[in-house]
């Protein structure tokens, strides 16, 4: 299977403090414009999606909505994408097809490292590796393999700027 890890696009700052204000953050108009270019670029690469799984936060939902232009199957929401990567998240993902998950940092980088390298490095090493795969807002990491720790290989890593050219 192929898995696209997609970080939400550029969002507006929170209006107020606390978790609720963070959940309510919409995409910035510039974030929308830039992420549309990412989707156009992915379409140019022939990307079609069988499934989109998204975090329930508004900026992720709005990013998933733009990404849905590539969707030929279903979408669903998952609270596991608004939390550190977990076995529960991996258990939710189908083992076939091409799917995208839309979420947040630092969780997506942690997920990326976990899927690429597994647990053999230990938690302390994982912490320092996350900074080496910085997913920019609206960025995409494209993996292939089995969605289990150490079961995937990195096929491409796109900062959103690549698609603005």
């Amino acid at each position: 299977m192929e898995l696209l890890l997609v970080r939400h696009a550029l969002a507006l700052p929170p209006e107020g403090e606390g978790e609720e204000a963070d959940h309510l953050r919409p995409l910035a108009p510039r974030g929308v414009r830039r992420f549309r270019k990412v989707v156009r670029g992915l379409r140019g690469l022939g990307v079609k999606l069988d499934l989109i799984v998204t975090s329930p936060k508004r900026r992720a939902l709005e990013t998933a909505e733009i990404l849905a232009d590539l969707l030929e199957g279903e979408s669903w929401v998952s609270s596991h994408l608004a939390a550190p990567p977990s076995e529960a998240l991996l258990a939710e993902l189908p083992k076939e097809g091409r799917l995208a998950v839309v979420g947040h940092e630092p969780y997506l980088s942690e997920l990326l490292v976990w899927l690429l390298l597994g647990d053999f490095l230990g938690q302390s090493a994982l912490g320092s590796l996350e900074d080496r795969f910085p997913l920019k807002k609206g960025g995409v990491a494209w993996l292939e393999g089995e969605p289990r720790p150490g079961g995937m290989v990195l096929r491409a890593f796109f900062p959103p700027k690549v698609f603005r050219i």
């Binding site: 959940h23 998204t54 329930p56 939902l61 669903w76 929401v77 998952s78 609270s79 608004a82």
Partner: peptide, 9 residues
């Protein structure tokens, strides 16, 4: 948790 996530969304 899916229903909770749906409500949150």
């Amino acid at each position: 948790p899916w229903t909770a996530a749906l409500l949150g969304a």
